[in-house]
Structure formats: structure tokens, C-alpha cells
Design a protein around this nucleic acid. Structure first.
Lengths: 216, 216
DNA sequence: ATGGCTCTCTTGTGATCACGTTTGCGGGTC
DNA sequence: GACCCGCAAACGTGATCACAAGAGAGCCAT
């Protein structure tokens, strides 16, 4: 009989937290979708306690919104809030890219190109969730080089808040072309062109989210 | 017999959360100070459950750090992290000030001057906690005019992370002069001078935190 | 006197339960 | 057919408990 290997690495609430977090960030949950503690506990096979901790953490990060009665749901963002979060993305990500630039060597650029190819694949398959995931991976891979964990954490918090909204955007948009500005980012990295990099990142971040604000 | 008025507005975990949060943000707790769930529960007169929720939320926001064993304490920040958080403050607060500028009318400027006078009082009393609180109130009052709640929330998260460290700084520094750059901020607001405002805010935010990184 | 070891007390975790509230559905009325 | 009211099921909250892990004090040996 095999001994049961105790899962040292993660406590239950951490497992639930991570599961919900990636699901939200990757846009697998539509805006306005409601969640219940007992339902989460059933799904992750634990009691309400770890589910509560995970949910509270996500509420604190703005990934979930809580009604006055304590019911929790994926947030439906107003246009003002989307504009604000886009501005925050631009602000922080431009800084992160700028800090990553001096440390960007060839291996990093090649990895970015690989991810970009994946994005092209995923886009042709009309896979919104895959697109969001790959797109964020592209950005995160670049920003990891900035060696600025606090900034990256803030950045990911913004991504998290925008997750369900990005899903709503990209499923409506049904884009078929791979992101144009990613190539500009890579080119600027190769050339060591900081102003060009800043502009490319800012544009890439802003362009997609502008369309949401324009819908109404 | 008086009827017991049920406290509608706040649940227990919210009360605990707010209490701990302002205590941390205002620098009333030194870096590295340990907290226990049962101790918090005793202090706020509740069981461990609300204490746990509040603590987990603060850990998620970076206001408290949690060891691998789950013990929780006020964080002792490395110099790199302080530099990073200072850069984040500069980035976000400059943007907030810039957005507040077009909406800043005379009543706001007068309120800022009143707060600044309070800071002068508090500084002469060598009251570090009072100084931090008034200083943050000065900034928050200005940024509220920006009408950007998501940005302000991020900003306050950074303040929260820096709370205990600011305490450590200002108690060591024992400054006796009121903040110089606050006058520059007010002057730029009066003049409608955006570049001057951006520079003044950036300098005000950065100057204090540079000294910490220089200690070592 | 000091370094290492053990034991105990304390801590965090997760499960369960009772309670008050809310939500949503179904039947009755206009 | 539409609207409103009432009831039952489901929900979040907070308390309590059992358990395992860890920290710290005290003791012994060197």
C-alpha cells in the first residue's frame, strides 16, 4: 500500500484561491456570475472555511465584488472604472517594460516570439480564454525581467480586476488577427529603443480596452 | 431597559479589518511586530474567525507578511522593496494629482492649507504617528478630487505596505520642520501649473523614502 | 557558563453548527 | 395575463472544537 503523501506545499485555502484566481484572470467566468461558498467548497472538495478565506482575499483584491448581503459575484465594471484600470495598466506596465529593457537579452526575446506565435494559433481557433492567457503570459514574461515584484503584483491585481471584462470584450470582438503591437514591442526591445518601447506597450495596453468603453 | 441597537453598518470582520488597517497605515505598529489571531480576537472582543478574515485580507494587500507556518507579522521591507514602493507612489500619485488639478477649486486648497498647518503643529510635538496620519490626509484630500477610486485604492495599498516602515523612518529622523514640498504643491495648484505640480508631488513622495534606503 | 535537547504550551487550520437574513419561486389576487 | 405577497430553501456569519505543527522555556550535559 502506497503511503499517502501529505500535500505540504499548499494549504486548502491557497489551492482554492489559486484555482479561482486563474479562472477569473483568464476570463473563464463572465461578468456578473454569482458564486456561493458552499458551491465552491463542493467544487474544491473542502468545507466553507477555506472557500471563505479564498473569496475574501479575492474580494480584497477587487477580483470579486461583494453585495451588502455578503453575496459574492464577478464584477461588472462601469466604463469609468475600465478607463481607470486601463490607465493604471498603462502607467505600471510602461514602467515595468522600461525597467526590463536593460536586462532583456536574446533568450528573452526568443521566448516572447514563441509566445507570440502561440497567440497567433490561439486566435485562429477563436479561443478567447486561450488568447487572454497567452497575452498575459507575453506581458508577464517581459515584466519578470524588471526585477520588480511589488510592481508586478500590482499589475497582476489590475489584470485580475479586468479578467471577466476582457472575456466579455474578446468574445464579442472575435478578432482574427494576432496582436500587432506585440511585434512593435519586440522590435523596440531588439533595438534598445526605450521611447519606442514605452509607446508600444502603452498602445498595446490601451487599444483593446478602449473598445469596451466605446460600446455602451 | 434600553433596546440593544444592532450594529447594521459593519460586520465584525470589517471592524477588525478597519482597526488593524488604520493602525498599520498610520505607523502605530513597528516593523517585525508579531500578531496572533487569538490576541486580535481578545482585543476586538470576537472569536478567531473574524480575526482570521481581517488578517488574511491584510496579508493579501501586503500590509502583513505571513511566515510559512502561518504566523503573521508586520513586514520588514528590504531596501529594494522600499525603492520599488516609492517608485509606485511617485507613478500613481503624480497621475492622481494631475487628474485632480483641473477640478481643484479654492475650497480644496484652503482645506489643504489647514491640514498643512496641523502637520506643522504635530511636527513640533515630535508625534510621528500624528505626522504620518496628517501627511496621508493631505495627499488623500488632494487625490479624492481626481475622481479615480481604483487608483486611489491602489495608492492606499502602497501606503499600507509602507506604514510600519514610515514609522521606523520618522521616529529615527525626528524632523522638526514641516514638509517643504507641500507648499510647492499648493502653489502649483493655485497657479494651475501642471508640470510644477507633477514635479512637486514626485519630489515630496520620493524625498522621505530615499533616506531609508540610504541608511543601511 | 553555554550549547543542545526535550517537552509543553501556544498557534494556525479546517470542519461543523446554530442563527438571522435574503432570495427566488409558487400561488393567489386584481 | 400581470403583479404582489408569503413561505421555504439556501446563504453568509461567527463561534467552537479537534488536531497537528511550531516556538520557546527549562533542563541537563559538557
Amino acid at each position: 500500500m502506497q503511503p499517502v503523501i501529505k500535500d505540504i506545499t499548499t494549504s486548502a485555502h491557497d489551492r482554492v484561491y489559486r484555482g479561482l484566481r486563474t479562472r477569473i484572470m483568464h476570463g473563464q467566468i463572465a461578468p456578473g456570475h454569482a458564486l456561493t461558498l458552499r458551491g465552491i467548497g463542493r467544487e474544491f472538495d473542502c468545507s466553507m472555511t477555506p472557500a471563505r478565506e479564498a473569496v475574501n482575499r479575492l474580494v480584497a483584491e477587487g477580483a470579486l465584488s461583494m453585495s451588502s448581503s455578503g453575496r459574492v459575484a464577478t464584477p461588472e465594471l462601469s466604463n469609468e472604472r475600465i478607463e481607470e484600470l486601463a490607465a493604471l495598466r498603462a502607467l505600471i506596465e510602461v514602467e515595468l517594460a522600461s525597467r526590463a529593457l536593460p536586462r532583456a537579452h536574446m533568450a528573452l526575446i526568443e521566448r516572447l516570439q514563441t509566445i507570440n506565435a502561440t497567440i497567433a494559433d490561439v486566435v485562429s481557433n477563436r479561443d478567447a480564454v486561450g488568447y487572454i492567457r497567452s497575452n498575459l503570459e507575453f506581458h508577464r514574461t517581459l515584466y519578470l525581467r524588471a526585477q520588480a515584484p511589488a510592481m508586478l503584483a500590482m499589475c497582476e491585481t489590475v489584470w485580475l480586476q479586468l479578467g471577466p471584462t476582457m472575456r466579455a470584450l474578446y468574445t464579442r470582438l472575435r478578432r482574427s488577427e494576432p496582436p500587432h503591437y506585440h511585434r512593435l514591442i519586440i522590435a523596440a526591445l531588439k533595438a534598445g529603443d526605450e521611447p519606442g518601447l514605452r509607446l508600444a506597450v502603452r498602445t498595446d495596453v490601451t487599444q483593446g480596452l478602449k473598445m469596451i468603453a466605446d460600446r455602451t
